[in-house]
């Protein structure tokens, strides 16, 4: 599988000369499967540029973790939405309050939007993620609720022998001592267990976290502890704070690799997500083919 980052920023777009290397677009990943199928993870503003690359696609699946604006804001500017021949299926968390379509339509409707969902030229459908794992484009997917503010999912996606977990908004250490807690009591543990790549929230440095406890995001040390506890082989630090410049994110990356080494791990297993970067994800042990 190849994962490409189209938006790594959290909370709100953060364009500007000091953000150029990591990028200012909000959460969006493109997951290319070995069979040629593709999945889109979240629809932050990064999805606009991704849409320009999908000119030939007739069917597109978008997996939303939740409906905070930084994860759906790009939907209205996603070029395939305006092509009649395209079918778009949007998956997201269920709610007893309203359907997924109704909740997303609060954004894609007047006065916030010049178009309504029903006016989009493409064929778009909305589906609650199933309670159990399901097949999509040749991948096996599981969605589970994780600790964040409001109903929020994390995804585990497996294709062949390769597995990734995408948990971009997650505060598993809220009220919980991650290092000593039994796995069954750690939010997101089963989703991320033994994955080849974990894409995880790392919005704050440790010194910033005390002022943001309960905001739904992780500090660096908690992200590393979570990744270590679940046995992730590689870690992509994601959902950068909009106030963090390239220079600040470089520093966080250095801190992350130093701390990861202190946990007995190889520093090369950690990367900071940067817009435009691709990550080739391979299984821990190459699959044996007959």
């Amino acid at each position: 599988m190849i994962l490409k980052v189209w938006g790594a920023r959290g909370s709100v777009p953060a364009p500007g000369p000091r953000m150029n290397r990591y990028g200012g677009n909000t959460s969006c990943l493109q997951l290319s499967l070995p069979n040629g199928e593709e999945l889109i993870l979240d629809a932050g503003t990064g999805i606009r540029n991704l849409g320009l690359e999908l000119a030939g696609r007739r069917r597109i699946h978008i997996l939303l973790t939740h409906l905070h604006l930084d994860h759906i804001q790009g939907l209205m500017f996603f070029p395939p939405c305006f092509r009649a021949e395209v079918e778009i299926v949007i998956w997201g968390p269920a709610s007893p309050e309203a359907s997924l379509e109704e909740r997303i339509a609060r954004y894609i409707s007047a006065p916030l939007s010049p178009v309504e969902v029903r006016e989009l030229p493409c064929s778009v459908s909305f589906r609650d993620t199933p309670a159990s794992e399901w097949e999509l484009g040749g991948a096996t997917i599981r969605a589970e609720s994780v600790t964040h503010r409001g109903p929020t999912l994390g995804y585990r996606i497996a294709c062949g022998e390769t597995t990734i977990a995408y948990v971009p908004d997650h505060e598993p250490a809220l009220g919980a001592p991650l290092a000593g807690l039994e796995p069954e009591w750690i939010s997101g543990f089963d989703l991320a267990r033994d994955v080849d790549l974990l894409v995880h929230d790392c919005q704050y440095g440790d010194e910033e976290y005390p002022e943001h406890v309960g905001w739904g995001h992780s500090r660096l040390s908690d992200t590393l502890t979570f990744a270590q506890r679940v046995g992730a082989r590689r870690l992509l630090l994601f959902h950068h704070d909009p106030l963090h410049s390239d220079e600040r994110l470089d520093e966080l990356g250095v801190d992350a690799r130093r701390s990861w080494r202190a946990l007995g791990r190889d520093a090369s297993e950690i990367e900071m997500a940067a817009e435009g970067a691709g990550v080739e994800v391979e299984p821990a042990v190459p699959a044996m083919h007959a």
């Binding site: 794992e133 599981r142 589970e144 597995t163 069954e184 543990f189 089963d190 267990r193």
Partner: peptide, 8 residues
């Protein structure tokens, strides 16, 4: 991709 259903 069987996930062990141990988590609460």
């Amino acid at each position: 991709m069987a996930i062990q259903q141990s988590q609460k």
